[in-house]
């Protein structure tokens, strides 16, 4: 499986009345064909801005100022709007959180579905319509032939999200970005949509960037996970390592603060004190400093880098604590060497 997407240290900035604001800072990750990465974090951590940066869908006052985004070796950061239009919807497509507002209320489902199909696949009107019906059936919409001619307001939230998925997958994209696709839906509908996405994923080998704040969804869907905090990736690893052996104090705090139905009865939730720092006033050192139970003097002054943990290349973390661990690890290795010699 080849590498499909490589996001390398991108920095996204917005021009505002109060000056330049960095919303995403040094975010890096890569994705292979058919793989699913989850971006997790709380509101304002930059997970949505990261995906909009990839899609060139930032507001006019925002731009990617550093770093590169390679899709199949093609640089996306400096791509012109005309070139980008060929990529968007065709190679990368996106599903949004609000299925209520992301469909145009004055066009029929069919009109909206066939637009991309005709543009990117060169189908005739009739072919496109047949294909659209086929896609609707694939995402589990009953009476697909009738629904094509209906307007979005006739559908429920879950059905609209299915239409969005049909639309996103119709041009067989290599990469699907799903921004909180189930957050606005009820749990029983969420379960339906997640099941559908799993099925389509194994069928089409589409790589997925799934943005969510729900660790339950992460555990269901992800191959790997990037935990984001205040515009940075603080921990990145495969999903099993993340849940079995989380390292970053923020990830640890997040895991302990979810009330879940499998928790024991009398367990008191641990909460992370304080709140996320403001983008106008980012701390100089580690951004989690004032909420971190393990904060050291060093964290206030120095910026930690995202580094892989010694023997596991696939587990990276942005924290000095781990460096201590690394030091101990090396000291131990050295001790062992001395003993051997």
């Amino acid at each position: 499986m080849g590498e499909l997407l490589k996001v390398d240290k991108i920095k996204t900035e917005f021009k505002t009345d109060k000056g330049m604001v960095t919303s995403v800072d040094e975010v890096s990750f890569d994705l292979k064909e058919g793989e699913t990465i989850c971006l997790v974090g709380e509101s304002g951590c930059g997970k949505s801005v990261t995906s909009l940066s990839i899609m060139h869908l930032l507001d006019k006052n925002g731009s990617v100022t550093h770093g590169s985004i390679l899709l199949n070796g093609k640089e996306l950061v400096n791509m012109s709007e005309a070139e980008m239009r060929k990529v968007r919807g065709n190679e990368i497509s996106m599903i949004f959180q609000e299925p209520m507002t992301s469909l145009n209320p004055v066009l029929t489902i069919g009109d909206q579905l066939t637009e991309g199909i005709r543009l990117h696949m060169g189908y005739s009107k009739k072919e496109a319509r047949d294909y659209a019906v086929e896609m609707l059936k694939k995402v589990g919409i009953p009476r697909a032939e009738g629904i094509v001619d209906d307007y979005p307001h006739r559908l429920s939230g879950g059905m609209r999200q299915r239409v969005m998925i049909a639309m996103a997958l119709s041009c067989k994209p290599k990469l699907l970005i799903a921004d909180e696709p189930t957050t606005a839906l009820d749990v029983t509908i969420q379960a339906q949509i997640l099941k559908l996405m799993k099925g389509l994923r194994s069928e089409s080998k589409t790589a997925i960037i799934l943005i969510t704040h729900d660790l339950g969804v992460v555990a269901e869907m992800a191959d790997k996970v990037a935990v984001m905090y205040a515009g940075q990736v603080v921990e990145e690893t495969d999903v099993f390592t993340l849940f079995d052996n989380p390292k970053h104090p923020y990830t640890l705090g997040l895991m302990k603060s979810i009330p879940h139905i499998t928790n024991p009865d009398d367990m008191r939730l641990e909460s992370i004190p304080g709140s996320v720092p403001s983008v106008y006033n980012m701390p100089k050192g580690c951004r989690f400093y004032d909420r971190c139970p393990f904060a050291m003097k060093r964290c206030l002054e120095e910026k930690p880098e995202l580094r892989p943990i010694e023997d596991k290349k696939s587990h990276s973390i942005r924290c000095f604590l781990y460096e201590k661990e690394e030091r101990e690890f090396e000291e131990k290795k050295q001790d062992e060497k001395e003993v051997l010699s």
Binding site: V187, T188, Q190, A191, Q192, L194, K195, D214, L215, G216, V217, V218, A219, E220, A222, V239, F240, F243, M255, I258, H260, I261, T262
Partner: peptide, 16 residues
């Protein structure tokens, strides 16, 4: 229907 925050349980049987 609630997703379980434990990736080892992702293949459990689920009534949807």
């Amino acid at each position: 229907a609630y997703p379980v925050p434990n990736p080892h349980m992702r293949d459990r049987e689920q009534i949807v």
